[in-house]
Amino acid sequence: MIPDLHGFGPALIAGTWMTIQLALASLALGLVLGLLGALAKTSPYVAMRWVGGTYSTIVRGVPELIWVLLIYFGTINLVRWLGTLVGIDELALSPFAAGTIALGLCFGAYATEVFRGALLAIPKGHREAGLALGLGKRRIFLRLILPQMWRLALPGLGNLFMILMKDTALVSVIGLEEIMRRSQIAVTASKEPFTFFIVAAFIYLGLTVIAMIGMHFLEKRAGRGFSRSAA
């Protein structure tokens, strides 16, 4: 039985697309921050390890919702000041940009630990083999370390992405019209909360299933060479 959406079907589809865009943008930012954080935490320099550890600890210790509110409302004066410097009056951070920064920041903090564990799991002999072949540190990292780290980190990153997909609902509190915001508007108009919230639940479930299939494909692809060598 198909529920009566009272004409809000297109709005929910638009909200789903917005959720996907927000999740992917946050993922991209989070992967960069996570990789940088892991490199900082495994750096031979104490200052870099302190920076990486501080970022990971502080961000993971504060709820994601608070980060969303802090970045959206707490940067208003800063963004306006930057706007005056570049000649743009009333410059403001959009809900999408604020949500991307907040969720990317949180994803990156957790991804830091995933990447760090993957880096530490790579035998030191692989780096030594690269040096013996005359490779520079940059080529060793890009050709030897990064592919292995990516393969080892994928399962953990996949779990974090599932959480990220659901955390996008938090951005509805600052007005971004993703799935939850669209559902709330539909509930207010139709007075049928169960119908629209159950539809939203199934949309999130569908997105999660699609993400799981994608992660399975990536894990299988990343482990192809490893599987052959192990056989």
Score class of each variant (00 low, 15 high):
residue 73 F to H: 09
residue 37 G to F: 06
residue 171 V to C: 09
residue 209 V to P: 07
residue 209 V to N: 10
residue 31 L to G: 08
residue 26 S to D: 06
residue 61 G to L: 10
residue 170 L to R: 00
residue 104 G to H: 01
residue 210 I to K: 04
residue 219 E to N: 10
residue 52 G to Q: 03
residue 72 Y to Q: 02
residue 199 V to H: 07
residue 64 E to C: 11
residue 182 R to Y: 00
residue 170 L to F: 09
residue 185 I to R: 15
residue 23 A to M: 11
residue 217 F to W: 14
residue 213 I to A: 15
residue 104 G to V: 03
residue 180 M to N: 07
residue 183 S to H: 05
residue 67 W to S: 03
residue 6 H to W: 14
residue 81 W to M: 12
residue 60 R to Y: 07
residue 190 S to L: 05
residue 218 L to A: 11
residue 11 A to N: 11
residue 180 M to F: 08
residue 114 V to M: 08
residue 71 I to P: 00
residue 103 L to N: 00
residue 231 A to M: 12
residue 37 G to Q: 01
residue 205 L to D: 06
residue 111 A to E: 00
residue 4 D to A: 04
residue 24 L to T: 04
residue 91 L to A: 07
residue 225 G to S: 14
residue 185 I to N: 13
residue 178 E to A: 12
residue 170 L to V: 04
residue 177 E to P: 14
residue 223 G to F: 13
residue 68 V to A: 07
residue 174 I to V: 08
residue 20 I to P: 11
residue 74 G to S: 10
residue 105 L to N: 05
residue 179 I to M: 04
residue 44 P to G: 09
residue 28 A to K: 09
residue 178 E to Y: 06
residue 155 P to V: 07
residue 50 W to A: 13
residue 143 R to D: 15
residue 145 I to G: 10
residue 124 K to T: 14
residue 29 L to E: 00
residue 33 L to K: 00
residue 78 L to T: 07
residue 5 L to G: 08
residue 8 F to R: 00
residue 32 V to Y: 01
residue 198 I to C: 15
residue 27 L to D: 03
residue 40 A to E: 05
residue 30 G to H: 01
residue 66 I to E: 09
residue 155 P to S: 10
residue 223 G to H: 08
residue 24 L to Y: 02
residue 176 L to H: 01
residue 184 Q to L: 14
residue 11 A to D: 09
residue 157 L to V: 01
residue 159 N to W: 05
residue 224 R to P: 01
residue 192 E to Y: 07
residue 129 A to K: 00
residue 123 P to S: 07
residue 81 W to H: 14
residue 154 L to A: 04
residue 11 A to S: 15
residue 191 K to S: 15
residue 11 A to P: 01
residue 172 S to G: 05
residue 113 E to S: 06
residue 21 Q to L: 13
residue 139 R to D: 15
residue 14 A to P: 12
residue 178 E to C: 12
residue 145 I to T: 07
residue 149 M to V: 11
residue 226 F to W: 14
residue 100 T to G: 12
residue 225 G to Q: 08
residue 205 L to G: 05
residue 65 L to E: 02
residue 36 L to V: 12
residue 97 A to P: 13
residue 138 R to Q: 15
residue 67 W to M: 03
residue 230 A to E: 07
residue 224 R to A: 11
residue 54 T to F: 15
residue 129 A to D: 02
residue 61 G to P: 04
residue 69 L to A: 09
residue 149 M to F: 11
residue 101 I to N: 01
residue 13 I to N: 06
residue 20 I to R: 03
residue 134 G to C: 11
residue 99 G to I: 01
residue 29 L to D: 01
residue 157 L to Q: 02
residue 32 V to D: 04
residue 134 G to Y: 03
residue 29 L to G: 00
residue 60 R to I: 03
residue 179 I to Q: 02
residue 107 F to D: 00
residue 200 A to Q: 04
residue 92 A to H: 12
residue 187 V to I: 13
residue 186 A to P: 08
residue 123 P to M: 09
residue 19 T to I: 03
residue 230 A to V: 12
residue 161 F to L: 12
residue 150 W to K: 07
residue 183 S to E: 02
residue 223 G to K: 01
residue 85 L to K: 10
residue 220 K to L: 13
residue 89 D to V: 13
residue 92 A to T: 10
residue 83 G to R: 01
residue 45 Y to A: 09
residue 172 S to A: 12
residue 215 M to L: 12
residue 112 T to F: 02
residue 168 T to G: 13
residue 86 V to M: 14
residue 150 W to Q: 15
residue 43 S to G: 10
residue 116 R to D: 07
residue 45 Y to R: 15
